[in-house]
């Protein structure tokens, strides 16, 4: 009852913090970090939902979901960082 609830509420809190930061910051890197924080929150909620009681092993399916989410997130973050770098290079070209 309590342990998974702590994870779930922590997850909701992280999502809230991430969404707030995403809304208020204009820098791309900040936004990217904010999205990563949101994803940690989502992951916590999902892992908490796999909890089935103290003596029962956790449900593996939500954990598989989380793994897929992590894969998607890593790929997307990498792609986003590439685009950020390209924009920065363009800014540098513009300055010189």
């Amino acid at each position: 009852m309590t342990t998974d609830l702590i994870y779930a509420f922590a997850g909701i809190g992280l999502i809230g913090i991430g969404l707030y930061r995403l809304a208020v910051s204009s820098s791309a890197l900040w936004q990217l970090v904010a999205v990563n924080v949101i994803s940690v929150g989502v992951g916590s909620i999902m892992i908490a939902s796999a909890y089935r009681g103290p003596s029962v092993p956790a449900d593996p399916v939500p954990q598989a979901f989380v793994l897929t989410g992590i894969v998607v997130l890593v790929a997307t973050t990498a792609a986003a960082l590439c685009i950020v770098r390209r924009i920065d290079e363009m800014n540098d070209d513009h300055d010189t």
Binding site: A28, L32, V35, I38, V42, M46, T76, A80, I83
Partner: peptide, 13 residues
Amino acid sequence: LIIGLVGSLMILL
């Protein structure tokens, strides 16, 4: 990409 990622996370949840 960033906004779409938020959407994806919602759908995953």
